[in-house]
Amino acid sequence: MDFMVNIDVDDIARAERFYREAFGLRPGRRLGPGALEMLDGPVPLWLLQREQASSAVPGAGATRDYARHWTPVHLDFVVEDIDRALATAVAAGARLEQEVSTHAWGRLAPMADPFGHGFCLIQFLGRGYDEAATPRTPDSPKAP
């Protein structure tokens, strides 16, 4: 199984510029004027042009909003140097929403892209999440 990431934006040219400058992604395939694949990440990232206030599905009460919004799904970009990645993302148009924090597993920078989508920059330290993970025991359920 593969994963693809789709991000709705209201200006595909501006989104292409942001994701290229902030994360070094490069354009791939285009599906007409409103869909652009961005490459060089671990999975394809598709930018999909959708009008502000348009409905995601027929009959949905919520509409697209490109001001800062919250959703329980977001992207984490794992980086080697969070300070350098933060400066690059901000220069490309991202907004830092909280100061960089340090945890047992690494450093975290909560941010938003120019289209209101939240994302985080993460720099793992030491053993990454294994620094904070509970060790498996013989009674731990097996992964499917």
Rank of each mutant, 00 (worst) to 15 (best):
M1G: 11
D2E: 11
D2I: 08
F3V: 13
V5D: 04
V5S: 11
D8K: 10
A13N: 09
A13I: 09
A15K: 00
A15H: 00
R17N: 04
A22C: 10
L25P: 02
L25M: 15
R29N: 11
P33R: 09
P33I: 10
G34C: 07
G34M: 09
E37Q: 15
L39N: 10
G41I: 03
P42I: 08
P42W: 13
P44H: 10
L45R: 02
L47N: 07
L47Q: 07
L48I: 15
Q49F: 09
R50L: 13
R50N: 12
E51M: 03
S54Y: 01
V57R: 06
P58C: 06
P58H: 06
G59F: 06
G59S: 03
R64N: 04
D65E: 13
D65S: 15
W70S: 13
P72N: 14
L75H: 02
I82N: 01
D83L: 07
R84P: 00
A85Y: 01
A87G: 12
R95F: 00
L96T: 07
E97I: 14
E99I: 01
E99H: 09
T102K: 14
T102N: 10
H103A: 04
W105G: 02
W105A: 12
L108T: 10
A109H: 02
P110A: 01
M111G: 02
M111T: 02
A112D: 04
A112V: 14
P114D: 04
F119H: 03
C120R: 01
C120N: 09
I122V: 15
I122M: 05
Q123E: 15
L125W: 00
G126R: 13
G126A: 08
G128N: 12
Y129E: 14
D130P: 01
E131K: 10
T134W: 01
P135W: 04
R136D: 04
R136P: 03
R136Q: 08
T137N: 01
D139L: 12
A143T: 12
P144T: 12
